[in-house]
């Protein structure tokens, strides 16, 4: 029993950084669930991935100027993410290139540029740190950033919820009643970038999307409505953070991959066992009804 206690709670009792990392993960989960659900509903999962990678060169320039300083790297990441979102939208609108193609191009460029810039000044350890995250880096300042992000996200999503839903499922109606849907689209993208910036301390730029997207994807196998999807995604994201941190602590692997892998387990379990369109429902469909 003592062993179990030590295993599960010891790290958080003994170490301040583990407590901060845990609180950061929980706050992150709270905000990013709604964002993740909308990323899926807008069929933007891969674009979200590209956006997350686009943070890297910004964070890298921040690193170049300010070293491993959170405000510098976060500000750089945010600017780079928003710039990529805007640029890809503009490129898609003014050329015949499809938006997914322009996002893929942006993502490759960003990843290459980011790794180059970090390598110019930093060590391989710094690079690993930025790419895959490090819970050691979560200090009070990052905690404040994550908490602020979660608050802004919840308030922001509540504010733009209705136009965003309509923009998702019937943009023509929004245009016909004279509302500029793109405005809300970009507000949503800004919130998504903000969440990834907040996530990249613990998860790294390569995995920043993991805690946003995987629980939301998993939730889509259980829930059919926007709100219930977010509510199902939330505990899965929180559990992924908790269990991932424990694995990272006990096995000394980077926290990002550990947290994201646990979230993947939730995804795989939901894919197999969920109540909507899961493997289980495909293999053993319940008997059909009379009418």
């Amino acid at each position: 029993m003592d062993f179990l206690w030590d295993f599960l709670f010891g790290p958080f009792v003994d170490h301040g950084f583990m407590r901060r990392a845990l609180v950061a993960c929980l706050a992150l989960s709270t905000g990013s669930c709604t964002v993740g659900v909308f990323l899926i509903l807008r069929r933007m999962s891969l674009m979200g991935d590209a956006l997350a990678h686009a943070l890297l060169p910004g964070a890298a320039i921040g690193f170049l100027l300010g070293g491993l300083s959170l405000p510098a790297m976060s500000a750089g990441g945010f600017v780079a993410g928003v710039a990529t979102a805007l640029l890809s939208g503009v490129v898609a609108r003014f050329t015949s290139l499809r938006e997914d193609a322009s996002f893929a191009a942006a993502y490759l460029t960003a990843l290459a540029a980011g790794v180059m810039i970090v390598s110019l000044k930093g060590s391989t350890v710094d690079l690993m740190h930025i790419l895959f995250g490090s819970i050691l880096a979560v200090d009070d300042l990052s905690l404040a950033l994550v908490a602020a992000t979660a608050s802004i996200t919840l308030l922001g999503m509540a504010a733009i919820y209705r136009p965003l839903v309509v923009e998702c499922f019937n943009p023509g109606f929004l245009a016909a009643v004279g509302v500029r849907g793109s405005l809300y689209h970009y507000a949503f993208l800004a919130l998504a970038v903000l969440n990834m910036v907040a996530a990249f301390q613990a998860l790294g730029t390569l995995m920043a999307l993991g805690l946003l997207l995987l629980p939301a994807v998993a939730a889509s196998f259980w829930a059919r409505q926007v709100v219930t999807m977010a509510l199902v995604a939330l505990p899965m994201a929180a559990m992924s953070g908790l269990v991932g941190l424990l694995i990272s602590y006990h096995t000394s692997v980077p926290s990002g991959p550990a947290i994201v892998l646990v979230a993947s387990l939730f995804y795989i379990a939901s894919l197999l066992l969920g109540t909507n369109d899961s493997v289980r429902m495909r293999l053993a469909p319940p008997a059909h009804l009379q009418a």
């Binding site: 998702c168 109606f173 509302v179 409505q225 926007v226």
Partner: peptide, 24 residues
């Protein structure tokens, strides 16, 4: 251009007709 796979109920969809009254 309605995405009919979007998870929204008939009532919520019809309520959008009141957009000019309740807005965003």
């Amino acid at each position: 251009d309605v995405d009919r796979t979007f998870p929204i109920s008939v009532l919520d969809m019809v309520l959008l007709g009141r957009w000019h009254g309740i807005g965003a």
